[in-house]
C-alpha cells in the first residue's frame, strides 16, 4: 500500500477548494476507481489525499424549474433508487442498474465516474445523451466561484478532463427533457454484471411523423472519450426513419467511431457491434 504523505477530510466546500488551491491534491470520493490505481502503484504518494465524503452539501439530488441537479457525491445506488428521478429521467436509473456490481454502486459516485473519464464510464453515455453539464468550483477571492461546462466538451482524453487541478466537480445538472423525448441506453459487455463495457450506445429524440427530431446519439468505449456522434445525429435528422434508412444510419455510426483493439475486443468487432446495436437501439426508440 502506498504511504500517503497526508490525508484530509474537509467538512465544507470552502475548505476543500482552499486545499485544492494549494496544489498536489488527489480527491477521494467513493474510491472505487482511485483505490485500484493506488493498488497498482499508479498514484503519486506525495499528493495529499483529500476525502470529500464529509462535505454534505455535495450530496443531494434537487429538482429545480428547468433541470435536476445531482450532487457529486450521489452514489450510483442513490441514482438507481431515487423515485422522482426514475420518473423524470428513467434513462439514468437504467444505466445505474447496469453499472458494475452492487458493491461498487454503493460506494461509486456520479462525480467520480465523470472525473475518472474512462472511455467506458457507465454513466457517461446517458449523461451525454441528456445534455448534462457539470459545475466546477474553485477558490476565488476567499470565496467559492464556479463555472459550468457542458459534458460534451468536458472530456479531453482517456482519464483527462477540463477540470483543472484547483477545481472540484460539485454537481451535475441535467435539463428536463422536452415533451415526447424518449431515449434508450444499451451497454454491451460479455456478461450481465461486473463488466467493463465493450461498447455502449445511447440514442434519444422526439419521434414524430417518421422523423426522430432533435436526435441525440452518444457512444462509449469506442473512442478515446465518450462522445456525441454528430454525423450520425445529422443523418438521423435528415430523413424519415424506416428500416432501410436505419441500416444506412448504422453504417454511418460504424464509420464515425474510432475504436481500438484491447483485451476486451478488437476494433473490427466494436464496429460491428456499434452497427448492429445502433439498428437495435434506434429501432427501439422509433418503435411506437
Amino acid at each position: 500500500m502506498t504511504n500517503f504523505k497526508s490525508y484530509l477530510a474537509p467538512a465544507t466546500l470552502d475548505e476543500a477548494v482552499d486545499q485544492l488551491n494549494q496544489g498536489n491534491v488527489t480527491v477521494l470520493a467513493g474510491g472505487s476507481d482511485l483505490m485500484l490505481r493506488v493498488g497498482a502503484g499508479n498514484y503519486d504518494p506525495s499528493h495529499t489525499l483529500m476525502n470529500i465524503l464529509k462535505i454534505n452539501e455535495l450530496r443531494n439530488i434537487s429538482f429545480e424549474d428547468n433541470e435536476v441537479q445531482i450532487g457529486t457525491l450521489t452514489t450510483i445506488t442513490e441514482i438507481r433508487e431515487d423515485p422522482e428521478l426514475s420518473i423524470k429521467m428513467p434513462l439514468l436509473g437504467q444505466a445505474a442498474d447496469q453499472f458494475a456490481s452492487m458493491q461498487i454502486r454503493n460506494v461509486g459516485t456520479i462525480g467520480g465516474n465523470i472525473c475518472n473519464a474512462s472511455p467506458a464510464g457507465d454513466m457517461l453515455v446517458p449523461l451525454l445523451l441528456l445534455d448534462a453539464a457539470v459545475e466546477l468550483a474553485r477558490q476565488s477571492d476567499g470565496g467559492v466561484a464556479s463555472r459550468r461546462v457542458a459534458l460534451k466538451d468536458f472530456f479531453v482524453g482517456p482519464g483527462k478532463t477540463q477540470c483543472q487541478s484547483n477545481e472540484l466537480l460539485t454537481r451535475v445538472s441535467i435539463p428536463f427533457s422536452k415533451q415526447g423525448f424518449r431515449a434508450r441506453f444499451y451497454k454491451f459487455g460479455t456478461r450481465p454484471a461486473l463488466d467493463i463495457s465493450t461498447v455502449s450506445i445511447g440514442i434519444g429524440g422526439i419521434f414524430n411523423n417518421g422523423y426522430l427530431q432533435a436526435p441525440r446519439v452518444a457512444f462509449g468505449a469506442v473512442a478515446p472519450v465518450p462522445f456525441m456522434a454528430l454525423k450520425t445525429m445529422k443523418a438521423i435528422e435528415q430523413s424519415p426513419l424506416d428500416s432501410e434508412r436505419i441500416k444506412e444510419i448504422a453504417e454511418i455510426a460504424r464509420d464515425e467511431i474510432k475504436p481500438i483493439d484491447d483485451v476486451r475486443a478488437t476494433a473490427w468487432y466494436r464496429k460491428q457491434l456499434v452497427h448492429n446495436l445502433t439498428i437495435k437501439v434506434l429501432s427501439d426508440v422509433t418503435d411506437a
Binding site: T190, R191, A193, R264
Partner: peptide, 9 residues
C-alpha cells in the same frame, strides 16, 4: 476484471 469467471447470474 478481465479474466472472466462465471458470475452468479
Amino acid at each position: 476484471r478481465d479474466y472472466k469467471l462465471i458470475t452468479a447470474p
